[in-house]
């Protein structure tokens, strides 16, 4: 099933961040967003996830716009943003389990996620003892711990060492081989094959007044 957006414009903090943006992701596809800081990559990802509303435009799956049934849309996606959604007083296992179970993850999946992100041995460690890179890996473990066709990733490799970046690359490839799709905002080359590029600069609104042509 295709995930796409048509003619999206987004106003944040009384500023037009981008306008007239179109995108589409097919099963097995990956969309890579690039652009400077403040170009609206995160805004676009949040609009795609349904956390923010596009000011104008439509975001949809082949079977209907996401606004028709937000819960169904949420069931189809994993969103890994800048914030890690982890509690310092909960253990690695407990932190992961909460989000995995919420999305219908099973014990085997959770165990597999722990293994794939090289968090084995840390299960009982409280979150407050994790390093930035380990916290990032714990966030990414959510991708494996329960299934969803669409991954929305905001700078997924931040704070990761080279080995972990390779692991993430492998995860994404595996996900795409299984028919999954990914939207990734990144400023570093991830080395993914066969991606669609989307440069936010092409949709920058510039200095236009959002009240343009009104009075």
């Amino acid at each position: 099933m295709k995930f796409f957006g048509e003619n999206i414009s987004c106003v944040r903090g009384e500023r037009l961040v981008f306008r007239g943006l179109n995108f589409a992701v097919e099963p097995g596809g990956a969309l890579v967003l690039t652009g400077n800081n403040g170009s609206g990559k995160t805004s676009l990802l949040r609009v795609m996830a349904g956390l923010n509303r596009a000011t104008v435009g439509k975001i949809a799956w082949s079977d209907g716009p996401i606004s028709d049934d937000p819960e169904k849309h949420h069931g189809r996606l994993h969103f890994i943003g800048h914030l890690d959604a982890q509690k310092p007083v909960l253990s690695v296992g407990e932190n992961l389990e909460m989000w995995a179970r919420l999305h219908g993850g099973t014990d085997e999946k959770i165990a597999m996620a722990i293994k794939k992100l090289k968090l084995d041995g840390f299960e009982d460690l409280p979150g407050r003892y994790l390093s930035a890179g380990q916290r990032r890996r714990l966030s990414l473990a959510r991708l494996v711990a329960s299934e969803a066709p669409l991954w929305i990733l905001d700078e997924p490799t931040i704070a990761l060492d080279e080995g972990s970046v390779a692991a993430v690359r492998a995860l994404i490839s595996e996900h795409r081989d299984a028919g999954g799709m990914a939207v990734i905002a990144t400023n570093v080359e991830l080395g993914l094959s066969d991606t669609t590029k989307l440069d936010m600069r092409d949709y920058a609104a510039g200095q236009d007044d959002i009240w343009e042509g009104v009075s």
Partner: peptide
């Protein structure tokens, strides 16, 4: 006031860009 804010925001972002 809102319009003035919007215009100055747009201008600031333009200058920054």
């Amino acid at each position: 006031a809102r319009r003035a804010r919007g215009m100055s925001m747009a201008q600031l972002h333009h200058q920054a860009a």
